[in-house]
Amino acid sequence: MRPLSVVVRTGCDFFAWFMIVFGVNIVIHGYMTPGGGFQGGAIIATFLAFLLVAYGGKKVLSWVNEKIYEFLFEELGLICFFVLALLGIGNSFFYNFLASPLGAERTGIMSLISPAGTTVFMSIAVGIEVTGALSLVIIAMFRGIRQFAGPSLPEEEIGHDR
């Protein structure tokens, strides 16, 4: 896609970073206010959609590193989520081992952690994962446009046909 006008680009510059802050806020406070991992992650991923629409695919895709999205966001989030689920296996898979009932005494390291327990951490992990996943989908599809629209088609895999 072609880049849009300078007014739109400036607006997007301003607004896109605001989206990130808003999304992170929604992820972190998901256990108190409406929101959570999915919603916040989707909002953060809109950041990339904004930039891609405003600046056009060519420029943005040249400075976005896909590996960062893949490994630092998606994989990290998924594995954190999985490990958090696995840590409760003393009782059962997905047991909320950090939670404490309302009004219970909280001492030591536990007093630093939110009483909602693993819910908060899982929410953050899912937020990271969703951010990475949705951004990767958008990046891949954008690259798809350029793959097909270029002067020459990509070379095809010959596979098993002889």
Partner: peptide, 11 residues
């Protein structure tokens, strides 16, 4: 997303 990717390949 997957349906649209497949449609792009069909195109």
């Amino acid at each position: 997303a997957l349906l649209l990717s497949l449609i792009m390949h069909v195109w």
